[in-house]
Design a protein around this nucleic acid. Structure first.
Lengths: 185, 185
DNA sequence: TCGCAGGTATACTGATCTGTGAACATCTCT
DNA sequence: AGAGATGTTCACAGATCAGTATACCTGCGA
């Protein structure tokens, strides 16, 4: 991607995430990125593809952060809840909920180029939870992974209301992993 | 509200929820409700106030459903997770996630007449969880209520991806209530 | 019978929307 | 020197947006 392309995506990310996709026009994005509308269309072809590029970039950044958190874990059991650690730092600069859930709310058409990206982001996290649970030797990895995903997404969704539920969610997630790895009582 | 007003809100609800608020114009709503745009503006004054009316109506329907589920519970412990029962029937006809979270994604301005309605809907549920937890004699009602809210909202948020996480969420919620009401082991 | 509330019909404003056309500038690589 | 990629400037098309103006119709209650 060209330097102008990167500036466009950066401006689009800020505007789309904070003001909504439909509410932000391409003229505004071009202005914020110091670029002509012509360049924007030469680079991305349409607003829909720019939306897809916005979500793709965000997805990559998020996955890198999660992978780093997983790699930094001391034990396999800690690794299972590493995405909650990633979310803790991520939340510092992203307080408007999940960009992918928000995007799906505005783009109900499954044939939209951004739809698959948003949907895959959640399926990827679900798969990651399951793999990490298997590695940690949890007893019901599929069920645990679903519960962890729900906890995770719920915590993200509550961000805009400024009632910080991440500590409670993280604590519960850790307790679930402990209960799944320790012998039954 | 006049009969025409009710038809307008009904059409607005269907369109706003399924296609997004910003993406739906007032002309389309007027057409779907078999009403003139003039009538729409005579009744609601502006699109913003129509959005507020849409969310208010939906909030009332949801609260009624939850209250009915609470009242139908056999024990105080069951009542704590009654909103999850309400969500089970609600999900049958609402598979596009939470209308209030989706609205907040599109309306970041706190001074928007619909903002407070959407935010209060979540705070109401959090308070309800807490009160029900206290009534059931749970040990840490505030923490439990937060965890139940996160589980609940996470389950709603995962609806659009058609991976049905409601059973796992409900099961976990019930287990949390049991653990909070039974003696420690 | 009068008045009024609720509603219809239609045309309109001014702004904003996505997207395109055409000509020109700048840079790098060959 | 030449070619191709990148980007600029500016005008423009056609549609849609929220909201308003004006005039008319209808049923009902005082």
């Amino acid at each position: 991607m060209t330097p102008a392309g990167r500036r466009i995506v950066a401006a689009a990310e800020e505007l789309f995430y904070n003001r909504g996709i439909t509410a932000v026009g391409v003229d505004l994005i071009a202005e914020h990125s110091g670029v002509t509308k012509r360049t924007l269309y030469n680079q991305f072809g349409s607003k829909d593809h720019l939306v897809a590029a916005y979500l793709t970039g965000r997805d990559q950044r998020w996955r890198s952060l999660v992978r780093a958190a997983v790699d930094a874990s001391d034990t396999p059991a800690e690794a299972v809840t590493a995405p909650f650690e990633a979310l803790r730092t991520w939340s510092g600069t992203n307080t408007r909920g999940c960009a992918f859930i928000n995007a799906l709310a505005e783009l109900p058409d499954p044939s939209h180029p951004a739809y698959r990206i948003a949907a895959n982001q959640k399926l990827w996290l679900l798969d990651l939870f399951r793999e990490l649970a298997v590695t940690a030797g949890c007893s019901h990895p599929a069920t645990l992974a679903t519960q962890l995903l729900v906890l995770h997404e719920g915590a993200v969704a509550m961000q805009p209301l400024s009632l910080d539920s991440l500590p409670e969610s993280t604590a519960l997630a850790r307790a679930l992993v402990r209960a799944g790895t320790s012998p039954r009582h």
